[in-house]
Design a protein around this nucleic acid. Structure first.
Length: 1114
RNA sequence: GCGCGGGUGGCUUAGUCGGUUAGAGCACCCGGCUGAUAACCGGGAGGUCGCAGGUUCAAGUCCUGCCUCGCGCACCA
């Protein structure tokens, strides 16, 4: 402690080699990070980190493109951290990891945003505004938050090329997407259909199932039981629906042919508990499934008849809303049909069928020849002619009207809605899909649509999915696999404006042409023009968006005029093309594409399972007959500290900048990675970030600072000298061994996607092993001004440990470790090799195969010494045991003990000095007579004992434990087995435990030995006092208080003081101890006053063990 | 409703092949240590390991049922 602070500056002024560390300053994490960002930009460090691996095997990462028309949040930081860390890690392993950015720019979210801003909440409004203008507004809106995204991306140090990103609205990208569609078209996988789809009247568009999945909400709605009056019989069939608005469209009733139905007659009026509208008269007859009578009927009835559903088939009934649906030439309208999917789990066992508003309804209607007529318009209102009270009204607003119409008993003969046809209404709670953008309930609606025949490639989807390495595996096997096993044809067309246009032209008679490139479009346009069809120019840079592409009119093979199908693509299709469209395949970059497909690694939130994870695979399977990616990390959702999902509407979004500006991006990233497994939902706790900063980064910084300051002071140059590890002191060999062990585990955990475990272990190493033990125990070694071997050894060791720690941390938290690495070596950590080896740089290596042994040989880790690690663990245990003994014996730490004995255990003489210091004892002795301080205990070994003792194992175990003379029992056992309660106990059935004898100031610690067996080592302290010990202890107490006072007075380290001390009622101070106090506290003058003199007013005072001490510092 | 993943002191979590004392961190209390650290060390309090059964000599761990949270699925007419 005799270094002068100013020396640190003075001595470093001379010529410093690149690798010669300079002193570290105080830590300002945010400043450090922002300074480094500048430096990375100036020095093009990202590019350098790629270039230095130019000859490595490629590892291909594909960025899932975010939409830049929303502000980035903390969940984006999480995803980007995992993307970044894997890329950085693989790069350090010697792989060439290029990272192209990407932006998703099409789709409904963009349109909705613009519609809101321009107040264009319907398709009519958009078209009146002008499609070209609208799309221009969309094109601009896409970049609203690009700057915010860029800032966040850079600040968090997500290394990705944002200057040459792929952008889904670019002509090149769209052209590749067109090409992909044409492949599907040519393979017969793209088809035009008429299908019932979930449809949002507000946005005027239908949704694919993965979009519908985003909007399920539980709602309570009125459901109704309706009486359908048979035309040729005085009875009604009861049917149930949760969507009263589909009733005007009713054209059929479906029954299960095998289901048993009953005809019953109402016996008496309903009781008083009747709720809501509807009812039935006494004597009225209704028909429904027998199983559901109890559930449905609210009257006492007599069963008149019982029959299978087949008996009902073909019978006709009165339309509910006569005239709402024209009968046309249908022979089956308003008759009973059979359908095998009808069950008796809900309703009445009779399914009301409105052809246009349900998938089953539609299929049944087509099969049975029911009239396909819409009673509802695309805007969600009833068409004129449905009923005077309903025409033109939004269907969801008509529930009450329909119920009241059906329950008013005004009509006659059961014809028309006002005929008392409502039997009952019942509130019904269920999950119903809502528009994920506007929150409006979706209507199932039969409409024109284009599909990709995913059902035709299901086997391949499953096969390719099996080839993907999923993390966690259950997402691939379970959730994603299940989705694929139930795959449906992909409805990819949207009746929208802003998106990749569907490149299909179609004639009135149904001839079709799918255009796969700009060149092809030009050729087709030329053909049409040659045939006399007027067309605008189709230049090489024609904008491939609406309304431009709508302006082209083509010619069919038979000479008919063809117009473009007025759809754009599902924007998920766009991003699903990313693996090849980012390279404008197949029009350009053939080599790049060939070398990078399929990609090695993608990573997104688990919510992309049905989104991007699926569409990437769907497109690659249909177009290339290959999987698109080899590894997929599926991240858990991010929740707030209460475990609630973060959402704008809840207002519990965490702003990443709060942490970037407080604890820094390092701490934020490290926290997110160590908080839990990547696939588990993460509760984001702002306090956790702070804790990470305080523990991990502050500690690391201080270790570094300790090393750097003395390295600078001593002009330490790691390259100027070297000391083989084997020749270094045990403490050094120990920390290096620990380092290697931790690094190997760290790497193993990375390989298994267990980044959280890796990080936790490394943090534990830095805080406990490195800072709290190695540095603490080594401090005095560096205080030595002489150029000793021991000091150099410590410096080399610290240097090496820090470098390896930096390299391990770098992928996760890239800032501070770069600062440290740069100062220690002159080079960025991001161009450094991965400590566990650099397989990517090996000749012939690929992203997933390399010579394991050759890779190991490239590792840069010190040797491990498990025995030494175990020994040191014991030493640390003993040091802690010493403190426990002192607590138990009420003896303060600063009061030395004359001696301490170590009983049993391995040879520790190498660490006796260290232990003496830690324990504050004058001498460490080894006690060879174990029985002097220890006795034995026997513990049963259940694994061995259980098979022999069976059900009496507990009694036997208890007997062994409670043996009055365990020593004798053990001897008997060793002599060939002892009978305990009829069981022969052998040596392998018991564990011998040595513990301290009662009555001594002792503790026994239990540590695993090198050979796996348990070691029982005791520490005994001599608790007797002597005048010399008391004097020494007092000297230490005084020193400690004076040092505290120096600190409180804010004195320079090298400042000298004048000290005066008055000890009242204390031990006689020995001269040597007084001198020691003076030296430790840097006294110019030091006076110990006799007890008779009186201390001045204002002297510092403290009390210890009944002694009062006063002192003054000047 | 079906599928997947959770539920361990106030909070965040570890817990391997089932093995008898469920382990950490934060926060709290007491004590100690400290001229690098926002730390560190020792002790204390705090747990019916979601609930109920079952298998077993032995269950946080395996089985069954249920409750609950999250996510996903869906032709609920």
């Amino acid at each position: 402690m005799n270094k002068k602070g100013s020396d640190i500056q003075n001595r470093t002024l001379g010529g410093r080699s690149m690798a010669q560390p300079k002193a570290a300053g105080e830590l300002n994490a945010v400043q450090l990070e922002t300074d480094l960002l500048k430096r990375w930009t100036d020095e093009k460090t990202f590019q350098a980190s790629i270039d230095v691996r130019r000859n490595g095997a490629p590892f291909i990462f594909l960025e899932g493109p975010p939409t830049a028309n929303g502000k980035p949040g903390i969940h984006h930081v999480v995803a980007r951290t995992y993307k970044d860390l894997v890329c950085r890690w693989k790069a350090m392993e010697g792989f060439l990891v290029e990272r192209k950015g990407g932006w998703d720019t099409h789709g409904l979210p963009v349109e909705i945003e613009v519609q809101k801003r321009l107040d264009l909440m319907s398709n009519e409004a958009i078209e009146a505004f002008g499609m070209a203008e609208f799309n221009q507004a969309c094109r601009e809106s896409v970049w609203t938050y690009e700057a915010a995204w860029r800032e966040m991306t850079e600040r968090m140090a997500y290394w990705v090329d944002l200057d040459n990103p792929y952008v889904t609205l670019d002509n090149d990208y769209v052209e590749s997407a067109w090409w992909a569609l044409k492949q599907m078209f040519d393979k017969g996988l793209l088809y035009r259909g008429h299908k019932v789809l979930p449809f949002c009247p507000q946005t005027g568009t239908s949704y694919s199932s993965h979009e519908v999945a985003l909007g399920y909400k539980e709602v309570e709605e009125p459901s109704v039981y309706v009486k359908f009056k048979l035309t040729d019989d005085n009875a009604s069939i009861l049917a149930w629906t949760t969507t009263p608005w589909t009733l005007p469209g009713n054209v059929g009733l479906a029954v299960g042919p095998e289901v048993t139905y009953v005809r019953c007659r109402v016996k008496e009026a309903a009781g008083e508990h009747w709720e809501g509208a509807g009812g039935a008269d006494v004597g009225e007859e209704v028909i429904l499934a027998k199983d559901l009578m109890k559930e449905v009927l609210r009257h006492h009835v007599d069963i008149v008849d019982e029959f299978p559903g087949a008996d009902l088939v073909g019978r006709s009934y009165e339309p509910l809303f006569p005239g709402a649906v024209p009968k046309g030439d249908s022979m089956t309208a308003w008759t009973v049909l059979e359908a095998d999917w009808v069950t008796t789990t809900d309703g009445t066992g009779v399914v009301h069928t409105a052809v246009m508003y349900g998938e089953d309804d539609y299929n049944l209607g087509m099969e049975a020849g029911l009239p396909a007529h819409h009673t509802v318009d695309m805007d969600g209102s009833f068409v004129t002619g449905t009923h005077p009270e309903l025409d033109g009204r939004y269907v969801k607003a008509c529930d009450e009207t329909i119920i009241s119409l059906l329950s008013s008993p005004g009509g006659t003969n059961g014809k028309g809605p006002e005929s008392g046809l409502l039997y009952r209404e019942k509130a019904y709670a269920h999950d119903y899909p809502h528009c994920w953008r506007t929150d409006h309930p979706l209507l199932y609606y039969a409409m024109d649509s284009w599909f990709v025949r995913m059902t035709a490639v299901k086997e391949n989807l499953l096969k390719f999915n099996d080839q993907v390495e999923w993390a966690p595996d259950w997402v691939g096997e379970g959730r994603f696999g299940e989705w694929l096993r139930n795959v449906k044809d992909w409805a990819i067309s949207r009746e929208r404006y802003w998106g990749t246009p569907l490149p299909v032209w179609r004639s009135e008679s149904g001839e079709m042409k799918c255009v796969g490139s700009i060149k092809e479009l030009q050729e087709e346009v030329a053909k049409a023009v040659a045939a006399g069809i007027a067309n605008p120019d189709c230049t090489d840079d024609v904008d491939l968006h609406r309304p431009i592409v709508d302006g082209f009119t083509l010619l069919s093979d038979s000479g008919e005029v063809m117009h473009r199908e007025p759809f754009v693509m599902d924007c998920w299709f766009d991003s699903g093309c990313a693996s090849f469209a980012q390279w404008h395949h197949p029009f350009e970059n053939e080599e790049v594409f060939n070398a990078s497909f399929p990609v090695d690694y993608i990573c997104e939130g688990v919510d992309q399972t049905r989104g991007w994870f699926y569409t990437l695979l769907a497109v690659s399977t249909t177009v290339f007959d290959q999987p698109a990616y080899k590894r997929c990390l599926s991240l858990g959702l991010i929740l707030d500290a209460e475990g609630k999902k973060m959402s704008k509407s809840r207002g519990n979004i965490v702003d990443p900048w709060d942490h970037f500006n407080r604890e820094g991006a390092d701490a934020t990233r490290w926290y997110m990675v160590t908080a839990g497994a990547p696939w588990n939902p993460m509760k984001f706790d702002p306090n956790g970030v702070r804790e990470t900063y305080a523990k991990m980064f502050l500690t690391l910084w201080n270790v570094y600072k300790f090393h750097a300051d003395y390295a600078a002071l001593d002009a330490f140059d790691p390259e100027a000298s070297s000391i083989p590890v084997a020749q270094r002191p045990a403490l050094d060999r120990w920390v290096l061994s620990r380092l290697a062990t931790v690094a190997n585990d760290y790497h193993e955990n990375f390989v298994n996607w267990q980044f959280h475990k890796a990080g936790r272990d490394l943090e534990d190493f830095v805080v406990n092993d490195l800072s709290n033990w190695y540095v603490r125990r080594s401090r005095r070694r560096l205080w030595d001004e002489a150029d000793s071997n021991d000091k150099r050894s410590c410096q080399h060791t610290l240097h090496e440990v820090l470098l390896t720690v930096c390299r391990l941390v770098a992928p996760v938290a890239p800032f501070m470790v770069d600062e440290i690495h740069r100062n220690l070596t002159g080079a960025s950590v991001h161009t450094a090799p991965w400590p566990a080896g650099v397989p990517g740089s090996l000749e012939g290596a690929t992203s997933d195969a390399w010579d394991e042994a050759a890779a190991k040989a490239t590792a840069s880790l010190p040797p491990t010494d498990p025995e030494l690690e175990a020994t040191m663990a014991l030493v640390r245990e003993l040091a802690e045991a010493g403190r426990r003994i002192r607590i138990d014996g009420n003896r303060r730490q600063r009061l030395p003990c004359a001696q301490g004995w170590i009983v049993a255990g391995p040879e520790l003489s190498e660490f006796h000095d260290l232990l003496a210091e830690e324990l504050n004892v004058e001498a460490i002795l080894v006690e060879n007579d174990l029985d002097r301080f220890q006795r034995i205990e026997l513990a049963p070994n259940f694994r061995a004992l259980a098979p022999k003792a069976r059900s009496s194992v507990n009694e036997v175990a208890q007997a062994i434990r409670a043996a009055e003379d365990p020593e004798a029992l053990l001897q008997a056992i060793r002599a060939g087995g002892a009978e305990v309660l009829g069981v022969t106990v052998e040596e392998s059935d018991v564990e011998v435990k040595r513990v301290e004898r009662p009555g001594f100031a002792a503790q026994t610690v239990d540590v695993p030995g090198a050979d796996g067996a348990s070691l029982h080592v005791s520490l005994v302290l001599d608790m007797n006092d002597s005048p010399a010990l008391l004097s020494k202890g007092m000297a230490r107490d005084i020193t400690r208080r004076v040092q505290a006072q120096r600190k409180a007075m804010d004195l320079e380290l090298e400042a000298t003081i004048d000290l005066e001390v008055w000890v009242v009622n204390g031990p006689a101070m020995e001269e040597a101890d007084e001198a020691w106090v003076a030296a430790e506290t840097r006294c110019a003058g030091c006076v110990f006053h006799p007890e008779s003199s009186t201390p001045p007013e204002g002297a510092e005072t403290f009390e210890v063990d009944g002694t009062t001490v006063h002192f003054t510092v000047a």
